[in-house]
Design a protein around this nucleic acid. Structure first.
Lengths: 329, 329
DNA sequence: TCCGTCTATGCAAACGTTTGCATAGATGGC
DNA sequence: GCCATCTATGCAAACGTTTGCATAGACGGA
C-alpha cells in the first residue's frame, strides 16, 4: 500500500505541510525539534518513500541527469559511465543512460524527466534536442572530440595528442607512418586526421591511410591484413583508437610481423586493456576523470543559471609511451 | 517557456481532456480524425513535451527501469548496460544506472522513480530494497551468479561451466591445477569454487588457491607472481574471471613462463578482449544476450502481474577452448 | 415526432507534493 | 498590561496530467 505524507500527517497529528517541511528539509529552522522527530519516526515506521513525480511536478526538478552516448561496448565507455555515475550521485543526481548512435527515430525527450543532458560524442542528437527545446532549452553539455559552438563543452585536444604521437613515431625512426582509421572518421575536419596529415607533411613523409569499415577490432584487424597484402608493410601505425590498435596488433601478429621491431604502434584513448598485452600498447591517454568532473560541474552551473555565459574546456591528452612504439636501435 | 496540454487545448479550441486523449493515445477511436490532426499539428508547432512527472503521478507508471550493478569497470559490464538499454528501449522503457557496490548509505529509492529494478550481482542491495518496500514490493529481477530465493531470477550455471573448464584442463594433461580467485569469492558456497573443489578432488589432484586481494588485473598479476615465487609453478590455472585471467597471463609472461606450454589458462565470463591476445584466452562464456533478454521479460511480466508465480531461469555457459589451454602433446 | 443509441467532447476530480500567506500562541520590552 | 516580534503550524492553491462520468448533437427506427 502506498504511503503518502497525508497519512503520516494524520498519524502524527499535524498537517501535511508540516510533514513536507520536515521530510524535504526545506523549513529547516521552522519546525520544532519534537515534531520533527515524531514525523521522522512515523515516516520510518510506515516505510514512506516520496513520490518523485509529484515532487518534480511542483519543484520543476527531477534530480536526474541523462548521459547520451553514441555507443557503449568497450571498457572505455564503461569507464565513462562509471565516472559519471559516481560524480553525479555525490551531487545528489541519478543517471539515465541512452544510446543515441544508431537510433533512427528522433530523440523523444520528455520534459520533466531529466534536469540536463551530457552527451558523449553525439553531436547530432544534441543538436536536434536543442532545436526541439528551443524556447527554454534543456541544459546540455557536450563531451568528446567534436563540439557544438552553442552549448557548454568539455573536450580533449586530440590534435596535439595525435601530433605528439605521430612525431614520436617519426623520432623512433619510422619513415612510413600509416594512419589506421574507420571510414567515417577519415575525412578532413577530424582532429586526428588533420594532425596526422600536418605532421607527416612537415616531415616530408608520404601519407598512408589504412581504412577500416568500422571501429571494431575485427574490422581493424581485417583492414590491416588486407592493406599489408596489397601495399606492403608500413613501419609505424597510428591508430584512431585503442580498440582498433588491439585489432591491428593481432592482425600484425597473425601475419608474423613483430611489434615494435618491424612496425611501431600507437593507439588513442588510454583504456586499461592495452597495458596487459604481450607488448603493452603506447597510446594517447584521455584524462577521463577530469573530463567527467568538468562536464558535471558545467552542467550543474548551467542548471543553476540558464543564462550564464558559455563554458568550455579543452584538456590536453597525454602520450603514454610503452613498448609497442619503442624501437630498439 | 513551458507548453502544456492546456495551451494546446486553448490554441486548437478544444478541452484539455481531448488533447490528452489524442496525445497519450488512449481514446483511440473516440476522437474525430479532424480534431486529432489539429491537435497533433498544434503540439508539433508549439514544441510540446509531456511532463512525465505529472503523467506518472496519475498513471502510477514511469516507464523507467533501474539497473543496479555492483561495479562498472570492464567491457563485460559495458556489454550488459548496452544490451539492457537496447532491450528496454525497444519496449518503451528508459534505463537508470546505479552502482550499488561500495555505497555505504542504504539504497534510498524514491517511489515513483522507476517501475522496476534489475540487479546484476548485487544481492545485498536487492534484499534491502525488498525489505524497505515490503508492502506492495517493487518488481525486482536478480541477475548473475548469486541468487535470492524470493525474487525472480536469471542466472548462469557456473558450477557446470567451471567443472567443464577444470575437467578440460585435466584432460589437457594438467596435474597441478590452481584456482585464481579474489579474496571475497574464495569461500565455499561460490559456485566456481565449489565446482573446482569437486572436480579436482574426484581427479585425485591437490587443491591450490591463488588468492588475489581483488578482481582487478593488477592484483591478479601480483598474486600470481607472488604465488609462483613462493610455491613454484602450477601447470594449469582456472581464473575466477577474464579480467583476472588477463592479469595472470601478463604476470606469467613477465616471469618468462610460456602459455600454454608451461601453464594452461582458462578464464570466465567471455569478454571480447581475451580473443585478441597474443595467445587467445580460453574462457567460460556467459550467454549475456539471452540473460538480458530474459531479465527484461521477467521484469515486464512481474510489473504487469505483481502476484504471478516466481520466475527463474538458469542458463548454461559455454566453454570456449582457445589457444591458452591447448597443450601441444 | 419521439426515443434509444452512438459519437465526440467537456467537466471536474484525483494523483502527491511544495510553498506563499495567514494565524495562534508565546515571548519580551516598555 | 499592551503592543511588537518571533516561532511553529495550518490552509489552500498550484504543478500537468489522466479518466470516470455526464452530455450535446447526430442518426436511425418505429
Amino acid at each position: 500500500m502506498k504511503v503518502t505524507i497525508k497519512q503520516i500527517a494524520e498519524c502524527v497529528g499535524v498537517s501535511p505541510s508540516t510533514v513536507s517541511r520536515v521530510l524535504s528539509g526545506r523549513g529547516e529552522r521552522l519546525i520544532s525539534e519534537q515534531t520533527r522527530q515524531r514525523v521522522l519516526r512515523a515516516a520510518e515506521e510506515l516505510g514512506y518513500q516520496p513520490h518523485l513525480g509529484a515532487r518534480s511536478l511542483v519543484t520543476g526538478r527531477t534530480c536526474t541527469v541523462a548521459l547520451w552516448m553514441s555507443q557503449l561496448f568497450t571498457a572505455f565507455h564503461a569507464r565513462i559511465v562509471h565516472l559519471m555515475e559516481t560524480t553525479l550521485w555525490r551531487s545528489g543526481y541519478e543517471l539515465l543512460i541512452r544510446q543515441v548512435g544508431h537510433q533512427t527515430e528522433p530523440p523523444r525527450h520528455g520534459r520533466g524527466r531529466v534536469d540536463g543532458i551530457i552527451g558523449f560524442e553525439c553531436v547530432g542528437a544534441l543538436r536536434s534536442v536543442r532545436k526541439i527545446s528551443h524556447r527554454r532549452p534543456v541544459p546540455v553539455v557536450s563531451m568528446g572530440a567534436y563540439y557544438l559552438t552553442d552549448v557548454d563543452y568539455v573536450g580533449v585536444d586530440l590534435y596535439t595528442g595525435t601530433a605528439q604521437a605521430v612525431q614520436h613515431l617519426i623520432e623512433q625512426g619510422c619513415r612510413r607512418v600509416a594512419y589506421l582509421v574507420n571510414a567515417e572518421s577519415r575525412h578532413p575536419g577530424d582532429a586526428r586526421r588533420d594532425a596526422y596529415d600536418a605532421v607527416v607533411e612537415v616531415a616530408g613523409l608520404p601519407k598512408e591511410y589504412i581504412v577500416s569499415v568500422d571501429q571494431s577490432r575485427s574490422a581493424a584487424m581485417a583492414a590491416v591484413a588486407a592493406h599489408v597484402e596489397q601495399f606492403g608493410l608500413p613501419d609505424g601505425i597510428f591508430c584512431h583508437n585503442d580498440e582498433m590498435a588491439l585489432g591491428a596488433y593481432r592482425g600484425l601478429r597473425l601475419l608474423g610481423v613483430r611489434v615494435p621491431e618491424e612496425v611501431a604502434l600507437v593507439g588513442c584513448d588510454g583504456i586499461e586493456d592495452t597495458e596487459y598485452l604481450e607488448v603493452p600498447l603506447s597510446t594517447v591517454r584521455q584524462p577521463l576523470e577530469e573530463m567527467c568532473r568538468l562536464a558535471c560541474e558545467f552542467l550543474q552551473r548551467r542548471m543553476a543559471q540558464p543564462d550564464a555565459p558559455l563554458q568550455s574546456a579543452v584538456l590536453l591528452p597525454q602520450l603514454m609511451v610503452r613498448e609497442s612504439s619503442l624501437r630498439r636501435r
